[in-house]
Structure formats: C-alpha cells, structure tokens
Amino acid sequence: MTRNFSAWPVLLVLSLISLPLAIMYASVFVDSFTNTPPGAILPNEFTLAHWRFLVDPSIAGNIWVATLNTFIFALSMVVIVTTISAMGGYAVSRLNLPYRRFFLAGIMVMHAFPSVTLIIGVFLVLQFAGLYDTLAGVIMVKATLMLPFGIWIMKGFYDAVPWEIEMAGVQDGASRFTVWRRLILPQVKPGLIALGVFAFLDGWGEYLLPRILAPTSEFRVLSVYLQQISVTDSINYDFNLFKSVGLYYTLPVLIVFIVFQNRLMNIFGGGTKG
C-alpha cells in the first residue's frame, strides 16, 4: 500500500474518541479482580472473591447451567436461522414461486418491525400453542423474528451468483437440488458464515424474550441471570460481582467478534442488493 498522507492524525482522533470505551473496559476488568476502599479511586487489594459465582451456586443459582442454556439458545439460533435462510433466500432469489413479490414485501416489512411491538401477539400465540414458558417456545419466537433479516441477507448473496453457473450445472445433468447444494451454496458461504456469527451474537445477547416468554422456567439464560444479581435495592447488592458476571458474559462475544470481524463485514458488502 502506498501512503499519501501520514496515519497518525487519524489514529489520534480515533483513540481520543474511543478512550472512554477503553477506560470503561479496563475498569471493569480491574474492578472484577480487586477491592477498592470506599471513596478511593485506585484499588488496594487483589481478590478473586468477585468470581466466586463461578463455583458458588448460592449467590444466584448455577452459572454453568445458565451458560449452557445460553449456548444452547445461541446455537439453536445459528442452526435454525442459517438453515432456513440458506434455503428461503435461494427460493425468493431464484425460484419462480407463487406470491414471490408478496413474500418479498412481507420479509421487508417484518425486517423493519421492532420485535417488542409484536410481543403481545406472540405471547397469545405461544399461550395458545402451549409453548409458553418453554425453551422451545422462546427459541422459535427468537428465530422467527431473525429470519426476515437472514433471508433478506442471503437473497442478496444469491442474487450476486451468476445464472450461468446454475444453467451450466443443470446442463451437466445435476438436479436443481444438487446444483444448489454443490454449486451455489459454496458461492454464498461467506454470507452464511457472517449470518451464523450474527445469529449467535444476537441469541447470546437476547434478554427480553426469555424474560417475558419464559419467566418461571428452569431454563434461564445468562442475561436473565445477570439481571437477577443486579437488583439494586437489595441489601447485599455487590457491584463488583455484577461487573465480574458482566465481564464473564461479554467475553465470548468479544472472542467471537475478534475471530470473525472480517467475515461479519461481508454482510454489508454482499447483502446490499435488493
């Protein structure tokens, strides 16, 4: 790369802007391992006491079960959303299906709908179907709400694959399904990976739906766990414990993001075509 101008002014501005964020992360990290005397700014002792929630279920229940639940929830998102979007996106992009325009318009509208506004209707449907207060119910609702986004993104990726590849595949004697699986799917893999990561992160961070649609269930995700230890008016409210759980909860997100950040950007590169 040739440089037309020096990079340091840009870097300086960026660091200044992101300084509050960096300080915040640093203080969360430091606070979760130390104790600070009241009134002081700097901590005075190192302790692992704030991480006792990892081994002591008496604080707010078993964190490992909550972690496992969150993983199950997030991975279900990945599986359901990528599978259905991979097929649905292909269908609306390539197949001459009846009511295609209607579907596309519906997907667009659903995509633009904030999920909170649907919550009463969703609640009634779940209640009626007997899925209220179950893991399966929450997973289905969350996945459904993510699908319009997923299908739309995948449609954009499929639209970018040339028709001729499909024609060539058919001419080579392959069925439409084989063409899709062996020839077209590999072309949209970057989009599928990005969508999967996105679905994972979205599922991992979901709070509202499990809280409302499965309030008493045994199934408890990390976001609900976090909420339960942060009841600010309780006597034994431990702010450093809250920070530690928060850090624990954020860690996988940070790791996933660092690993996949380039792939995530793909969504905005390939998914823009309407």
Partner: peptide, 10 residues
C-alpha cells in the same frame, strides 16, 4: 454440452 459466454466455471 453448453459453453457459455462467461464460461460459467464453478
């Protein structure tokens, strides 16, 4: 057998 203008190789 068809050869397309843009070859349509996989």
């Amino acid at each position: 057998g068809v050869v397309f203008q843009n070859y349509a190789l996989y």
